[in-house]
Design a protein around this nucleic acid. Structure first.
Lengths: 195, 195
DNA sequence: AGCGTAACTGAACAGGTGTTCTTTTAAAAC
DNA sequence: GTTTTAAAAGAACACCTGTTCAGTTACGCT
């Protein structure tokens, strides 16, 4: 056999995804052309098609990878404890995970409308799974009596919206450290859903 | 004088803005062409330029109008009372105002990156003004002693993120009425920032 | 009835779009 | 050193982009 399959593609492939990620986050999927991505990688546009069947798949792969990473990281977290303890763990995990991947997070919910219906359904399913994890905690807390929310489903969405909002303003090296941000949000979440 | 200026433009002008609003919200600014907008209005693309100098101004006008409406509606609200009363009024106002204009709200913060730097600065300024209104309430509450937040600026952003999240799921005719949604969110906001 | 003009058409402009495909390059395996 | 083949180049495809502008239409006014 001649050159091992992907001897260069090992380098170029990830570079394509990295370039697409950064450009999609900065300018939006629809506003970024395949030629712009290629220029960033240092390659002609046609060469991109060695790494993705089309532009849509490139977007979908980025979003799916992000959501899969999220789910995997979540299940790696230590589990167990009271509902309150698990809620704190969820809160801190969410902030930590999302603040470390601003581009992925931004794309994952700004570009939902640019997915084909089938691809959208997949991403939506993963997002629902993640929300369900939080909803379970809130439900258990109600059963335990340690938490009291007016509506479990709404509280779930409210907490996630609040936590994801961190990404719109938090920057490393700012007034607050990530640990301080975690603490501030945990204070508010805890009070908001406390019994 | 012949035909009064704008005898048709009184009709077509608003129709252009309405079509652009709906299309931008559904597909995104970059993904919508002037010809698509024109088709929706029932006119040729060239005719749109009787109503906007260019596509960018169309986007900016929609966003500026929305933000201006928001500020105007806010100052029309009854003022005064304790910080807690004003916070409740703000919470309910925010949900009511935003849930009535899903397209405008969606565009106003999904399309920020498609504004020119100058236009972005204008919209950003208006958004900051609105945030400051809430921040003042939280600050007054701290002074009064009725409210206690770990960080006023962060609490402001957290509350707004939480409230704006309503638009991602609330639909008229669903499980909860708008009044019930207001109540659910007010419960959580109140507890989150209570002393 | 006919003038003035706002509103619109339709063609044109220069350039960009995603994607395909043949050809070239160059590195690994023999 | 030759062969094999993955990777990339570069041209081509048909079509779409925002915007301009000369020409046409049709309405309000006198």
């Amino acid at each position: 056999m001649a050159r091992t399959a992907g001897s260069h593609s090992d380098i170029t492939g990830p570079r394509v995804r990295t370039a697409a990620l950064s450009l999609f986050a900065r300018h939006g999927y629809a506003a970024v052309s395949m030629r712009q991505i290629a220029r960033e990688v240092g390659v002609q546009a046609g060469a991109l098609y060695n790494y993705t069947p089309d532009k849509q798949s490139l977007l979908f792969d980025l979003m799916q990878t992000h959501m899969t990473d999220l789910m995997a990281a979540r299940t790696d977290e230590p589990t167990g404890g009271t509902a309150l303890e698990r809620l704190e763990a969820f809160t801190r995990f969410h902030i930590r995970f999302h603040s470390a991947r601003p581009d992925e997070v931004f794309i994952a919910y700004m570009e939902l409308r640019n997915l084909t219906p089938e691809n959208f359904a997949v991403i939506e399913g993963l997002r629902r799974q993640y929300e369900d994890a939080l909803e379970s905690i809130l439900q258990d807390g109600q059963t335990e009596g340690s938490l009291a929310v007016p509506d479990t489903k709404v509280a779930t969405l409210a907490v996630i919206a609040m936590l994801t909002g961190v990404n719109t303003w938090f920057r490393e090296g700012g007034r607050l450290s990530l640990g301080e941000v975690e603490q501030v949000y945990w204070d508010m979440v805890r009070k908001a859903v406390a019994a």
